Computed example of a mutant assay.
Amino acid sequence: MNKFEILGYFWIFTSISLCIGLYKLELSKRVIDEEYEYIKKHRAFGNLTKYLTIIAIVSILLLNLNFLVYKDYEFMSRFGGAWAFFLLFIMCTGFFQKRDSLYYKRGIIAIASILFGAVGSAYAFKDIFFK
């Protein structure tokens, strides 16, 4: 097995783990803790995060299936990076609270840090995304 193939399987394992985490946080009916349930009820975008999570899980499964079938590493690097930005967008919608929420300021700080990380990642991967 060469290094690219090992990296590809590592990517698949990591992305499936992230999907399981997204499912547990956003789609599972089981209560994680009271604070998080309060945050879910006071989101500024309502159920948008849940629908975006479903789209993200389906898209990463299709992306992994495409990689397993065709072993296309360039495809994985392009669309895997785009999926990572989509995941950051889902986190932004999940953290952003209504103004009357108890955790509004915490959500603003979380969004700022996530967007700052997304901008840094976009600059780091500019050669891959903007050929």
Rank of each mutant, 00 (worst) to 15 (best):
K29I: 09
Q97D: 02
S17V: 11
F67K: 02
Y51N: 03
F96H: 05
I114P: 03
L63H: 03
L88F: 15
V119C: 10
S77M: 10
F79A: 01
Y9E: 12
D33H: 14
I16C: 07
Y123G: 09
F13P: 06
L65K: 00
Y103G: 05
A122W: 15
F4D: 15
N66M: 10
I16W: 00
Y104I: 05
F10L: 11
E34Y: 05
G107H: 01
S113H: 03
I114N: 03
F129K: 04
F96I: 15
F45V: 08
I6R: 08
R43Q: 08
S77E: 09
N47A: 14
K105F: 11
F89E: 01
A118C: 13
L87W: 02
F85C: 02
L22Q: 07
F96M: 12
F116Y: 14
F130I: 11
T53R: 01
I12L: 11
W11V: 01
F89N: 04
K29C: 08
G120W: 10
I108K: 12
K41T: 03
R30E: 14
T49K: 00
F125G: 05
L102N: 04
K24F: 12
A118P: 04
F13G: 10
G81M: 12
I6T: 14
G107C: 12
K3F: 11
R99W: 04
Y9N: 07
R99P: 03
Y38N: 05
L61T: 09
H42S: 08
L52E: 00
V119W: 11
N2V: 11
S17G: 15
Y36D: 02
K131D: 04
R99N: 14
F67P: 00
V58K: 02
L25C: 10
H42W: 02
I54D: 03
S101P: 01
I55S: 06
K29N: 15
Y70S: 09
F10C: 09
Q97E: 06
K40I: 05
I90L: 13
Y9M: 07
I109F: 12
E5R: 00
F13T: 15
L63M: 02
N66W: 07
L18V: 14
A84W: 06
